[in-house]
Amino acid sequence: ELREAFRLYDKEGNGYISTDVMREILAELDETLSSEDLDAMIDEIDADGSGTVDFEEFMGVMT
Score class of each variant (00 low, 15 high):
1 E>N: 14
1 E>Y: 15
2 L>N: 03
2 L>I: 08
2 L>D: 04
4 E>C: 15
4 E>D: 12
4 E>G: 04
5 A>W: 15
5 A>L: 15
5 A>G: 04
5 A>S: 07
6 F>C: 10
7 R>A: 13
7 R>N: 13
8 L>V: 13
8 L>A: 14
9 Y>I: 06
9 Y>V: 04
9 Y>W: 13
9 Y>E: 03
9 Y>N: 04
9 Y>K: 04
9 Y>Q: 04
10 D>W: 08
10 D>N: 01
10 D>A: 04
10 D>K: 00
10 D>S: 03
10 D>G: 02
11 K>M: 10
12 E>N: 08
12 E>C: 08
12 E>G: 05
12 E>F: 08
12 E>Q: 08
12 E>W: 08
12 E>P: 03
12 E>I: 05
13 G>R: 05
13 G>H: 05
13 G>M: 06
14 N>D: 06
14 N>I: 10
14 N>L: 14
15 G>S: 03
15 G>L: 04
15 G>C: 05
15 G>E: 03
15 G>R: 02
15 G>T: 02
16 Y>Q: 05
16 Y>C: 03
16 Y>W: 15
17 I>R: 01
17 I>V: 06
17 I>A: 00
17 I>P: 00
18 S>R: 08
18 S>K: 06
19 T>Y: 13
19 T>E: 01
19 T>H: 05
19 T>F: 14
20 D>W: 12
20 D>A: 15
21 V>K: 13
21 V>S: 12
21 V>Q: 15
22 M>F: 09
22 M>L: 12
22 M>N: 00
22 M>Q: 00
22 M>G: 00
22 M>C: 04
23 R>P: 00
23 R>D: 00
23 R>K: 10
23 R>W: 04
24 E>P: 00
24 E>A: 15
24 E>F: 14
24 E>Y: 14
25 I>E: 00
25 I>L: 11
25 I>S: 00
26 L>P: 00
26 L>N: 00
27 A>E: 05
27 A>P: 01
27 A>R: 14
27 A>F: 10
28 E>M: 14
28 E>N: 14
28 E>W: 11
29 L>D: 02
29 L>K: 08
29 L>I: 09
29 L>P: 00
29 L>A: 08
29 L>E: 03
29 L>C: 13
29 L>H: 10
29 L>Y: 11
30 D>I: 11
30 D>S: 07
30 D>A: 06
30 D>H: 13
30 D>R: 10
31 E>W: 12
31 E>P: 15
31 E>K: 15
31 E>R: 15
31 E>F: 11
32 T>S: 12
32 T>R: 10
32 T>F: 09
32 T>W: 09
32 T>M: 08
33 L>E: 01
33 L>F: 06
33 L>R: 07
33 L>M: 07
34 S>C: 06
34 S>Y: 03
34 S>N: 08
35 S>Q: 13
35 S>E: 13
35 S>A: 11
36 E>T: 11
36 E>P: 05
36 E>M: 09
36 E>C: 11
36 E>Q: 11
37 D>I: 09
37 D>F: 06
37 D>N: 07
37 D>C: 12
37 D>T: 10
37 D>R: 11
38 L>V: 08
38 L>H: 01
39 D>S: 07
39 D>Y: 05
39 D>N: 09
39 D>C: 05
40 A>V: 09
40 A>Y: 09
40 A>L: 11
40 A>Q: 10
40 A>T: 09
40 A>P: 00
40 A>G: 07
40 A>H: 14
41 M>S: 02
41 M>T: 03
41 M>V: 06
41 M>W: 15
41 M>A: 06
42 I>F: 05
42 I>N: 01
42 I>T: 02
42 I>H: 01
42 I>K: 01
43 D>C: 13
43 D>Y: 13
43 D>I: 12
43 D>H: 13
44 E>H: 13
44 E>G: 11
44 E>R: 13
45 I>F: 06
45 I>W: 06
45 I>R: 02
45 I>G: 02
46 D>A: 04
46 D>N: 08
46 D>T: 04
46 D>E: 03
47 A>V: 12
47 A>Q: 12
47 A>D: 05
47 A>P: 11
47 A>T: 11
48 D>S: 08
48 D>E: 08
48 D>G: 07
48 D>P: 03
48 D>H: 08
49 G>C: 09
49 G>D: 06
50 S>F: 05
50 S>H: 06
50 S>Q: 05
51 G>L: 04
51 G>I: 01
51 G>D: 03
52 T>A: 05
52 T>V: 08
52 T>E: 05
53 V>W: 04
53 V>I: 15
54 D>H: 09
54 D>P: 06
54 D>F: 10
55 F>T: 01
55 F>N: 01
55 F>Q: 03
55 F>M: 06
55 F>C: 03
56 E>L: 11
56 E>H: 11
56 E>V: 10
57 E>Y: 08
57 E>D: 10
57 E>G: 15
58 F>N: 01
58 F>E: 00
58 F>K: 00
58 F>W: 09
58 F>A: 02
59 M>P: 00
59 M>L: 11
60 G>K: 15
60 G>Y: 15
60 G>H: 15
61 V>Q: 04
61 V>N: 03
61 V>P: 02
62 M>E: 01
62 M>A: 04
62 M>Q: 03
62 M>N: 02
63 T>N: 10
63 T>E: 09
63 T>Q: 11
63 T>P: 05
63 T>L: 14
63 T>G: 11
